[in-house]
Amino acid sequence: MADNITFHFDVHGDNFSSAGEASQLVKKKLRQLGFTPDVIRRVSIAMYEGEINMVIHADGGAADVTVTDEDIIIVLADRGPGIPDVELAMQEGYSTAREHIRSLGFGAGMGLPNMKKYTDTMTIDTEIGVGTTITMTVKHKA
């Protein structure tokens, strides 16, 4: 692969039902590019969880996906409230989502742990009142 392939999406925070559109498009693109089902599933689940988080907690943001020779890199950047305690947020079952989010089927406190589980690397860069950027990579070469 000579050049990296990039995709950019704006994730809208005001529309819960459209959350996941970007992940779905990326899933389609990766399928067209011929990646294995395992790689496609890991990327799309991790990105989908991140997208849902951006809609629930941060009023949307931007999602950028870069496909390089070795990795698929997902960068999710928002201008939300930031994460006060990242270690706590990474614990399974810990959630600050409000009750109505739970009634929509999310907010079980599995999002961030799940994103870490499905990817090879994940870093969280967050500042209170400024926003959060999450960078995840999935290796697609054995």
Partner: peptide, 15 residues
């Protein structure tokens, strides 16, 4: 028994 579009999206993500 949950009704919203994320049910379909979740199913799709999980193949």
């Amino acid at each position: 028994g949950l009704i919203n579009s994320q049910v379909v999206r979740t199913a799709s993500m999980m193949d």
